[in-house]
Each structure stands twice: as C-alpha cells, then as structure tokens.
Design a protein around this nucleic acid. Structure first.
Lengths: 145, 145
DNA sequence: ATACTAGTTAGGAATAATTCTCATTTAATA
DNA sequence: TATTAAATGAGAATTATTCCTAACTAGTAT
C-alpha cells in the first residue's frame, strides 16, 4: 500500500492523517505478527520516541472501530491486533503462543455452504473464524520460542 | 454429577478436595454462563464470604491445567471460563457480548474429515473451535442486554 | 497565506483484572 | 494422631488498559 493510498484510506474513513497514525500503521504492516500494543510501542518509538502509549491504544481502538484492524481473541491477558483484512483463520501454537494466519478458501466455501443450509435459530452470522489449536511439528523460530 | 463423582474427579487428578474447590465447581456448574472470576466470586461468597478472590483465580487456573474447565478466547480485557467439556463452539453476540455454546456434531464431523484429508503443513491440530460472530435476531434476555 | 475548529496527542494519574507473597491452615497419608 | 505437602486468606504488587486535560495540529474555510 503506497503512501497516498494510506492517506486516502484514512481520510476516506473520516480520520485525520497524523504522523502518529501513520507510524502505528507502518508498525502494524511491518510487524504483521499480531503485535500487542506494547510491541507497537517498541517499534514506533525508534522513530517516534515521544509517542505516548495511551495514544497507541487510542489509535488502535480507532482503527478497530473503523474496521482497519481487528482484535484477536486469545486467552491471554493482553490484546493482540491483526491488520490482515483478507479472510483468514488462526493457528494457535500451544507451545510458543505464536498465532499464525491460515488462509483456506476451500474451507471458507464449505462453511459458507454449510451455514447457508443449516441456519442457527435466532442468530444472524456475520463471520466465522476458526481457532485451530495445536502445535508446530518443527518449531518455528519466534520471539517466544 | 453427584458429590462422590466430583470428589473422585478431583482426587483422580491429584487435587485435594477442599470446600473452596467444591464451591467454585458448584458455581461453575450452576452459572454455566461462561462466568468471569468476579462472577464466580459473587456466587461463591453467598455461601462462603471469606473465599479470597486470589484463591478463586488460583482454583480456576488449577482447573484449567487439569482440563476441568477452559479459558474462553475473547477480545475483552477479562477472562471467562467454560466448564462445558462436550465438544462445542461459541456464538459471540456483538450486541450484548453474550457467548452461547453451539453444539453441532455434523459440523464437527465435516471439519474432522476435511482436515484429515487436508493437512496443515508443519502443524498438528489438537482441536478446532469456531468463533461464530453475529447477533441474535430476537435479543435474548441476559445480564448484559 | 492565515485563522478557525474539531479532532488528536502527550503525559501522567487512575482503574481494574490478575498475580504474587507469605504466614496460617488443612486434606490426605502413614 | 502426627506429619507434610498442598491450599488458602489477606492484602500488597503488578500490569495492561483507560481516563483526564491541557496543548497541539490537520483539515477547512476565510
């Protein structure tokens, strides 16, 4: 995504284009790793030492509201954020706590067809996300492993 | 589950049978609602006013380790616990934040067969849980709604 | 270019969930 | 009944996140 595309994306959603928001976006796009607010802070502070952690939370929340990123559901006591907006699921490795994106259009189609036929009483489905829990066969090198 | 079954279940996992653990178990089995630690405390304190919140966290963590309950993955900043051990998925209502269990053996079989055929490279699947996100058509009466 | 204004940020205090510490108590076992 | 490892109570400590407010700034109109 080019600089001008980013600017258009933000202003298209009624958000002012600030250096802080650009820095957080750049961090999210660079890290990819489903960072925590703190990881974003660490990244951003290299170039922007005064960016307040409160501002980062503020920006992340705003981005969530505008659908630019999503919060990831985990059983941890801190939040993780996901900037990948193409439909995907998550692999949760129990050994290293790494969360990997999993893309599978065939699966998505199968689920879509299944729930088109089989409605859930009294419930409108907006989206379905799989938590695929397990562990890597050959452990991936990550921060946590 | 009868009292003696509960006792056997706890001691079978190497846990001492204490009044506090029994109280927390009873709360979990009665509330069912995926309670927070605080909701468990509220329930338990009616009969056990001195049960410390730290002890509740301690017990809940122990139960998780022993596979008696599970933490539910959410995007909230507090934990919720699930004592239902039969395979199930979760409906997340965006309007009222209620999390409902969803049982569907046909779906489970379909997923099982799908991933038996289609392995995920370098990843052993232990379990798959669906987060079905949406909202109730006719809103259910809950604490939050 | 300049001024205006609503929206945004910095910095730090406040909050709330959770964890930790450790002295005391207790369940299970011998 | 005595022993001991495990569990609990009480509250302090920690940590992620939110809140507050004065200062600042991007976008817009003048």
């Amino acid at each position: 995504m080019s600089y001008s595309e980013i600017v258009d994306m933000l202003s298209g959603k009624g958000l002012k284009v600030t250096p802080q928001r650009l820095a957080v976006l750049e961090a999210l796009m660079t890290i990819k790793d489903h960072p925590t607010a703190d990881a974003v802070k660490e990244y951003v502070r290299r170039s922007n030492p005064n960016l307040a952690i409160g501002t980062i939370y503020n920006i992340l929340e705003t981005f969530c509201e505008k659908g630019i990123i999503k919060k990831i559901k985990t059983d941890k006591d801190f939040m993780q954020y996901d900037i990948e907006m193409h439909k995907h699921h998550h692999l949760y490795c129990e050994q290293c706590d790494y969360i990997e994106n999993y893309y599978d259009e065939e699966l998505d189609k199968m689920l879509q067809e299944y729930f088109d036929k089989k409605q859930i009483p009294n419930f409108n489905i907006k989206e379905i996300n799989l938590q695929i829990i397990g562990n890597y066969k050959n452990h991936k090198p990550t921060k946590n492993s």
